[in-house]
Amino acid sequence: MSEKKQQVSRRQFLNYTLTGVGGFMAAGMLAPMLRMAVDPVLQESGHGDLTNVSLAVEDITTDPQRIDWKVKQVDGWYESEVNRSAWVFKDENDEIQAFSPICKHLGCVVSWEGSDEYPDQFYCPCHDGRYYKDGTNVPGTPPLQPLDVYEQEVRDGMLFLGDAVPREGA
């Protein structure tokens, strides 16, 4: 017999076969487990519908007012109504602005003129984060991005809000 034919011995062949079959079986067991664990990451995040927040457009002032409303939330097998909040006002161009009150630093809740020391600003009490009236963060305070903006629509003179999304180029 030539050298070539003996390159793979019976022992080697069986080793490779067993390793291959073992690896295949291990992969067959682990693949569904891993896929199960990462499923939330691969879920398409669906954009929620806009909700009537019970605020007539004519009632929106140039001074930010906090409004609260409820949306239906589906968390896996658990469905519930959750509270949402926004700071809503009309800016100098008479356009409606609806900001999320969630601080972009570490997620506390900001309020308009929440500190006497900083009038005309949104203020976060957790780490003194501040935002100007247009929602942009005051440089030198903890937040590094402007407040998120709610998707909005006006239907029949009522304000409808959707999800809060980060601003472009933030």
């Binding site: 990462v38 939330p40 995040s45 939330q73 968390d75 896996g76 658990y78």
Partner: peptide, 12 residues
């Protein structure tokens, strides 16, 4: 991956 949902800290 940690929270089990992109936006909610909840049941999952």
């Amino acid at each position: 991956l940690l929270a089990g949902d992109a936006n909610i800290v909840g049941a999952q």
